[in-house]
Amino acid sequence: MTYEQRLTDFRHYVGAGGKVEATDWMPDDYRAGVLKFIEMHANSEMMGAIPEREQIPHAPSLQRKMSLTAKVQDEVGHSQLLYRIAEDLGKSRETMYLDLVNGRSKFHNVFHYPTRHWGDVAVIGWLIDGAALVTQAALLESSYAPYTRVLKRICAEEQLHLRHGEDITLELASGTDNQRAMFQDALDRWWLPIVHFFGPRSNVDKDLLLRWKVKTRTNEDLRAEFLDRYVPKVLELGFSFPAPVPFESGGHWVVREDDIDWAPLDAIKRNQGPETARRLELRRSTYEQHAWVRQALAEPATQVA
């Protein structure tokens, strides 16, 4: 069979809802595209551990201290699952890690921003995890089967994180003025990045991942679902949105595309977000300091008589 014939067969197979395993034949474009996509997801979990980890020391109760630690642990666990399946597509975890810390690969926009206080934990845990869950649940039908299997577990854990985040939010929302102000302050800073999170409008004709059914829904479609689901919940708690202010239209909650300032997202795409350099440097220097540990792990244990 020629490459062209195989490609045609593969297109039909995937087009008809067929699933691809790591050991199956796949076009080079597909392999590269899936790898890049999962690698970015893995990077995002890895970098996503940082903002919340920054707030673990500030947790206001023992229960919150343990549950936030457990949540960040889950994020690290997700990166472990994702890096492992990405590795099976032909790029080593070490190379992926080095590409990340040297700014050669990307991670999600929301993890380029600083956290200031406990209100950030509520917004991240509820709204950012809510946004992530909308996008990840849409990937459960992806054509790349190892990814969907891992996502099944990730989504289940994200569901728990969402509960955790909502719980923290509700405690702040029904608490003192000071607590309510914490949430509002965090929402004011995070709202635009959350709207950015879904990305600009998809170019359906050009998006190879959509064509290969690695992704199954467009960015604007996912953003619309998120807004419909979460905007009313935030409003009924008595909080307000900064720009882009969502409004009701035709039974849906929407934001006007013209109201979205894309400049901060463009900067982040160049790895020039407010916290990008500092966090990558933190990862890079930690990685370097641990060279000796990797060495100790790499060598078979020797028995001292």
């Binding site: 509960r163 509700l170 029904s174």
Partner: peptide, 12 residues
């Protein structure tokens, strides 16, 4: 969560 939502709504 249902009770907590209710409490938070009332506070709002």
């Amino acid at each position: 969560v249902v009770q907590k939502r209710e409490l938070a709504r009332r506070r709002a």
